[in-house]
Write a protein that binds this DNA or RNA. Structure first.
Lengths: 154, 154
DNA sequence: CCGACTCTTCGGTCGGCACTGAAGCCACGA
DNA sequence: TCGTGGCTTCAGTGCCGACCGAAGAGTCGG
C-alpha cells in the first residue's frame, strides 16, 4: 500500500515551510501557511492548528499574530465562547512577493548615495558605478513588469 | 568643519553591510564588499582589511573565502612572501541578483508539487491555485525581462 | 634547514531567535 | 458576579551562527 495522502501532504507542508524559513519566516509560521492553503475545511481554530502541526499554543499564537498582521491570514471571530477561526488570505500573497521585489530594488538607494559620495572622483567610482547601473536598470524594469501582472492577482 | 569624507564613507559602508546582513550575508562580509567597492587603491590585503574594518583575521579570512567562492571578490597572489591582494569583482554582481530572482521563481516548483497532490480535488485546490498562478506568471515573466538586461552587465 | 611572514583552522564565547508551557487576561454566558 | 474556556504574554531553555584570537600549516627568501 502506498503512502497515504495526508502523509504526503504533511511532507509537502514541511518542504513549503522549509523554503520560507530560509527567507526568514519562522518554521511554524510557514507550516501554518502551507497547512491553511490545503486543509479541508478551509478554516481552523488555533487549538486545531496546535494539534495538527504539533506546536505549542504560544508558538501558534505568536505566528498567527504575525501572519494576520502581514495580511496573509484572516481571523474570524464568532459570538459565544467559540474559538476564532483562521483562514488563508491567498489574495494577499502578491504583497509578499512585492516586498521581495521592493527589497531588491531598494539597494539602488544605497548605490546612489554611494555615487553621490564619490562625485568628484569618477575614477574611484567606476566599480560602484557598475553595480549602480545594474540596480538602476532593475528599478526601472521590475516595477513596469509588475504593473503588467494579470488582473486576477489584484 | 564638516564631517570628513572617510567618516561619511565608513557610515555608508555600514549601511551597505546592514542591508545585506538582512539578506543573510554576514556583517563583516558586507563590510568587505562595501569597502572594496570604493577603496583607493582598489586592491587590499587581508591584513589591511582586518585593520581598516576592525575585524579579526579569522573573520576576514572566513568571509573572504566565502566572497571569493561566490565570485564577488578576486584573489590575486604574488610571488615572494607578499600578501595576496583582494579586489571586488563587480561584474559578478549580476549573479547575486540572479540568485535572488531564482529563489523567488523556484517557489513555483513547490506550488506545482502541491497542485499535483491536489489533483482530483479541484475545490480543495483553489487557494493554492491562486498562489500557483502568481508564481507561474513570475516564472514566465522574470526570465524574459532578465534576458533583456543591458549588455554592459554581462 | 631556518626564520619570517601570511593565511587558515578551530575551540570558545556571545548574542539573538524560535519555541515551550504555564500563568494571567479577556470575553462571554449563566 | 462568578465560572468557563480561549487567547496572549512572558520568563526560561536550547540552538545556531557570527565573531574572536591563538595555534598551526603553508610559503618563500636566505
Amino acid at each position: 500500500m502506498s503512502v497515504g495522502r495526508e502523509t504526503r501532504l504533511s511532507a509537502w507542508i514541511e518542504r513549503f515551510a522549509a523554503h520560507f524559513a530560509e527567507e526568514g519566516i519562522p518554521l511554524i509560521g510557514g507550516r501554518i501557511l502551507g497547512y491553511l492553503l490545503v486543509c479541508q475545511p478551509t478554516e481552523r481554530t488555533a487549538a486545531e492548528l496546535s494539534q495538527e502541526l504539533e506546536a505549542s499554543s504560544g508558538s501558534i499564537s505568536t505566528n498567527l499574530k504575525f501572519l494576520v498582521n502581514a495580511g496573509l491570514v484572516t481571523k474570524r471571530t464568532r459570538r459565544g465562547r467559540q474559538a476564532a477561526q483562521y483562514r488563508i488570505n491567498e489574495k494577499r500573497w502578491v504583497d509578499l512577493i512585492q516586498r521581495k521585489l521592493d527589497a531588491l530594488v531598494s539597494v539602488r538607494e544605497l548605490t546612489e548615495a554611494g555615487m553621490r559620495l564619490m562625485s568628484g572622483d569618477p575614477e574611484r567610482a567606476v566599480r560602484l558605478r557598475t553595480v549602480d547601473d545594474l540596480y538602476t536598470w532593475l528599478a526601472t524594469e521590475l516595477p513596469a513588469v509588475w504593473e503588467r501582472r494579470p488582473a486576477s492577482s489584484r
